[in-house]
C-alpha cells in the first residue's frame, strides 16, 4: 500500500441474502468518509435471493473512469456456487479471502450466523487503507433501523474478523483450499420424542430457507433458529425442541418449502384422517 497512487479493485461474491451488497455499501461509505474516490456496482439476477450475488467495488485516490474491471486485487468469496463466476477475475497477484473457511466462526463465538458478512468485512478491512473506526461508524449508520442486539453482534463480529485478519497467514487464504460441503449430501435433522405417542419430527436441512413462518405459527413455541447449522442460503435453519412438540403438524402445513414433516405413531382415534 506504499504506492503513490492507491487503486484497489475489490470483488465480493456470495449467495444472495448473505449480505454481499451491504458489505460493499458499508465499505463504499467508509471510503468516501476517508476522502477516497470510490465506485460500487452491484450484480445479481432476478431471483433477489438464492442466486449468486456480486459486488464490484473500487477504491482509489484518483477519479475512477469505469465501474467494472477485468482482474481484482482482492477477491472475497462467500460461497462455493460463486467460484466459477469469479475465477476469470483472479490472477497471480489477487489476494483471496476465503469466507467459506469461516462459515462456522460466528456461531463458535456465540454470534448469529447472520453476522458472517461483518466477520468477513473485518478480515477485509485489514487489507484496506481505511480507519476501522470509520467503518464501524458507517456500519452503525447502515444498521440504524435494525435491533440493538443485531447491531451489537455485528460490531462484535467485525472486531473478531479484524483480529483474525491481522493474525492470518496469507497462504491460508488461497482459493485452492476450499473445503467442499456438498448440500446434496446434507443429512436431515430427525428428532424423536421419548414420550407416548411417539413423534418423529424431520427437518430437511437443504430445503430450509429460514423464513421463520413455522416459528411464528408453532402453538407451543417448540421451534427456534439453529445456532450452528445453516441452510441452502447460508442462513440458520430451524431446529425443534422435541420435548415441547405436541405433533400438531402446524409447521408441516405452513412450511412453504416442504422442509418439515411430522409423524405421530399413534394418532388419536377421533382426529380427522388426511390422505
Amino acid at each position: 500500500m506504499k504506492r503513490e497512487h492507491l487503486s484497489l479493485k475489490i470483488l465480493l461474491a456470495g449467495e444472495g441474502g448473505q449480505g454481499i451488497q451491504v458489505m460493499a455499501q458499508i465499505l463504499q461509505g467508509a471510503a468516501y468518509q476517508t476522502g477516497l474516490q470510490t465506485v460500487y456496482i452491484p450484480n445479481y439476477g432476478v431471483e433477489q435471493r438464492g442466486g449468486v450475488s456480486l459486488a464490484y467495488l473500487q477504491i482509489s485516490t484518483l477519479p475512477i473512469p469505469y465501474p467494472k474491471f477485468k482482474t481484482a486485487d482482492i477477491l472475497v468469496l462467500m460461497c462455493e456456487r460463486a467460484i466459477p463466476r469469479v475465477k476469470p477475475y483472479q490472477d497471480s497477484q489477487t489476494q483471496v479471502i476465503n469466507g467459506i473457511f469461516f462459515l462456522n466462526t460466528s456461531a463458535q463465538h456465540n454470534l448469529s450466523p447472520k453476522t458472517h458478512n461483518m466477520l468477513i468485512l473485518g478480515i477485509l478491512s485489514t487489507l484496506l487503507p481505511i480507519n476501522p473506526e470509520v467503518i464501524r461508524q458507517t456500519m452503525k449508520k447502515r444498521f440504524q433501523k435494525a435491533s440493538a442486539l443485531l447491531l451489537n453482534q455485528n460490531e462484535q463480529a467485525f472486531l473478531l474478523g479484524r483480529g483474525l485478519g491481522l493474525r492470518l497467514p496469507q497462504d491460508a487464504q488461497r482459493l485452492k483450499k476450499i473445503p467442499v460441503d456438498d448440500h446434496r449430501k446434507w443429512s436431515d435433522q430427525i428428532s424423536v420424542s421419548k414420550k407416548h405417542p411417539k413423534i418423529i419430527h424431520t427437518i430437511i436441512r437443504r430445503y430450509c430457507k429460514s423464513c421463520g413462518i413455522c416459528i411464528s405459527r408453532c402453538p407451543t413455541k417448540a421451534l427456534h433458529f439453529s445456532k450452528t447449522l445453516t441452510g441452502i442460503y447460508g442462513t440458520p435453519i430451524v431446529e425443534v425442541d422435541i420435548k415441547k412438540c405436541i405433533g400438531c403438524k402446524m409447521c408441516e402445513t405452513v412450511c412453504p418449502d416442504t422442509a418439515i414433516s411430522v409423524k405421530k405413531e399413534e394418532p388419536l382415534a377421533d382426529s380427522p384422517q388426511k390422505s
Binding site: 441474502g17 430445503y207 430457507k209 423464513c211 416442504t258
Partner: peptide, 10 residues
C-alpha cells in the same frame, strides 16, 4: 427442490 421462490414466499 429446493424451489426457486424467496424465503417465506406465499
Amino acid at each position: 427442490l429446493p424451489h426457486l421462490f424467496c424465503p417465506g414466499c406465499g
